[in-house]
Design a binder for these strands. Structure first.
Lengths: 230, 230
DNA sequence: CGGACGGTTGACACTAGTCAAATTGAGTGG
DNA sequence: CCACTCAATTTGACTAGTGTCAACCGTCCG
């Protein structure tokens, strides 16, 4: 997977970087490719690198002591992940990063970015922008989990995924996720997801397939997410 | 409520500020005092000020369309809140800030801090530190809500509160929160909190009073939080 | 052709929410 | 100091919503 330093400008945090900065970052970084199912890092590892996904798809997940998984977010190309270590020295990753498909990422030394931020206010600034949006999303999801029913939460997950990665076709939107994935993203079980999707299929909101959900009536799904329906 | 600019150094974000910086901040800020139950700001208001709590206690909460409340965090003196607007221009507060008791806070113009950050890397940096810790806490709480039982979550809330504000006495730890408060903090209902506390009282883990919980066996509570007990 | 994997479905258990009613306790005004 | 009031809390009865478990199905792929 080939890319030029300037491609990094697609990364939110590097949008205002100079060409020199980008060159320096790439020169001091390494490219890591891993296979589907493998991990860039595990929860608890020392956060010596932060990553920019170049290709593929990665999920960030936390595991509780009992081994249950919670999906915090899915990363798409040119998004940064594992960046908390760039701020806090000697930090550990608070989550694990697993490839959902064969993936390539640029691994940047945390200390490098840390040093660069000291003399480049725009860098700190854009990283803070990213962090604020992340805080807000987590707050919203926390509230949803605390106050909304499973059905609404699954609907929200599908809508969020649609915005982030949905493939629009003539007849709706395609999403490629297993029931298990959706369950982890909405804080429920794969059984419940299966039942909810079956119900929605009866109501002509979606068509469900193997590791696949096809949204036929996005507007109806919004109504479910809002809790208006049913 | 009188304070000197140097008191601000207790604020995490200002720990490395110069005396001049602190003076400048205080000169350009106003002190606001509000009564118990009133709000410093509401979710959705334009985030023109960020606050440093000088005295009292404030809770940050989100309200969903149906009016249900979720408690995101409690603020104690010399903690900053409402800071997201300092990063993102023209942002709205993502949560409301309500005083749990008569409270005084320093209201700092978002634009002022924003400008100061451009020339003072330490400021951006310390603000990022705050934001990372907040992200990690939200992630942990999200995971707890998704995977743990009510009893465990209430135990965790009590332990968290103990660390943040518990008054240690000879025979345990005192916390002053109503059942409703605890319910909002753990994502459940006041009825369930009441039942759980009654059960714990039978098991000699706590003694419960009106707007009051006295932890007699912190170690046992930890076991409950870990899911080992019961 | 035979697994393995993802998904579906039924039966059942059980957690935690809802609602109503009773009880307690703190503070207030006489 | 004693009613009185009101909010906080408790408790019981009931149940909706989800999780759990097990059996089974279909399909993809070696």
């Amino acid at each position: 997977m080939k890319f030029s330093p300037k491609d990094l400008r697609q990364v939110t945090v590097f949008q205002n970087a100079t060409d020199d900065d980008l060159d320096q970052i790439v020169r001091n970084s390494i490219t890591r490719s891993i296979e589907e199912g493998e991990f860039f890092f595990f929860q608890g590892d020392p956060a010596n690198y932060l990553y920019v996904l170049v290709s593929g798809q990665v999920k960030l997940l936390q595991t509780n002591p009992g081994g249950q998984q919670v999906n915090l977010r899915t990363i798409y190309p040119w998004q940064m992940f594992g960046a908390l270590g760039a701020v806090r020295e000697q930090a550990d990753y608070p989550a694990s990063a697993q490839a959902l498909e064969n993936s390539t990422a640029l691994a940047i030394q945390s200390t490098l970015l840390h040093e660069m931020m000291e003399t480049r206010p725009y860098l700190s600034f854009d990283l803070m922008l990213l962090m604020t949006s992340y805080i807000q999303e987590m707050q919203a999801r926390y509230r949803e989990l605390a106050t909304e029913r499973v059905e609404q939460r699954i609907a929200r997950v599908l809508l969020r995924l649609t915005a982030q990665s949905g493939q629009k076709t003539d007849e709706g939107i395609d999403l490629a996720f297993s029931r298990q994935d959706l369950a982890e993203m909405s804080g429920t079980t794969l059984y419940t997801v299966s039942r909810v999707l079956a119900d929605w299929e009866r109501r002509d909101l979606v068509r469900a397939g193997r590791e696949q959900v096809h949204i036929t009536n996005p507007h109806g799904l919004v109504r479910v997410a809002e809790g208006l329906e049913k």
